[in-house]
Amino acid sequence: MKLHGVTRTLLLSLLYIAVLAVLGQTLIPFIGPYYTQVLIFIGINITLAVSLNLILGFAGQFSIGHAGFMALGGYTSAAISFYFLGPLLAQLGTGGMIGAVGEPAALAVALLSGGIAASVAGLLVGIPTLRLRGDYLAIATLGMGEIIRVVILNTDFVGGARGFTDIPRWTTFTWVFLVAGLCVLVVRNLIASTMGRALIAVREDEDAAAAMGINTTRYKVFAFVLGAFFAGVAGGLQAHYLQYLHTNSFTFLRSIEIVVFVILGGGGSITGSVIAASVLTILPEALRCAESWRMVIYSALLVVMMLTRPQGLMGGREFQWSWLIPTWRKK
């Protein structure tokens, strides 16, 4: 039996959710807090990498302000939980229905508002700056990221320079990978649609795309807004996991880190971003035994990877299960 389109996606999504729920109950208590934390950061980084890949890899817009959107989403969702949802939950109590669904529902609301705040900022910033190309756009997005950070640094009700403390701890393994899975699904389906084709056309040759009647600015802004949305949600997940936010986490170095995930995985490859984000999150942890040589080895590995595969790990391709099957048949 061969399933098509919507049914297949729906079934696969349900299977994915079921697997996550089972893993959350069995694997997570088994592996302990440290490995769980590594997994959670992998999930957050996958979301960031795939959402930036939409902007950078598919639409071809060089943005280095992703950490800014992440900060905005993180602080917005944290503020909503801290000032509104947290007290509300405390008032409703932990009994019965509210005890069971209260926290997940509150986290969903917080993440959604974080995502929306980030995408609104993406829209406001995107409309004027996406007229720029290449280096100019990079510098404009860099400036935008810093503006967001400095504004937060001077906003007292989210902690200002002291940092935002006492954020409720609602993020779980299952939530992080639900968001990562959703991000992959949305980006994948978008790319396969008319809209995705238009984005790729813009990346390949903006003038030619415009000549074919594509409203290039509109598509670029759309990619930018959607990418910002997921970055904001990822920021919210981080905030509700660490229970603490400080603007030092969202400097342009963080943006560069996400750009590295995308370039290393291969611009325009979702599986590439997923693999690169996972490997580059695990690697610094695995190298802890090397002590002060750790970051040297890490950086050297980046250089080697870029020299051997300048087009990135996946080089614009996606992983297919069929790659694994012919191997056995041939041998």
Binding site: I282, E285, A286, L287, C289, W323
Partner: peptide, 27 residues
């Protein structure tokens, strides 16, 4: 092309396994 992509995919996997081994090596 398929062969090349596959070998790199395996290389990535090898790196991951190496990383996990190194992780458990701290005595």
């Amino acid at each position: 092309v398929r062969q090349m992509v596959k070998s790199n995919w395996l290389r990535g996997l090898a790196l991951l396994v190496f990383a996990l081994l190194a992780m458990s090596a701290c005595s």
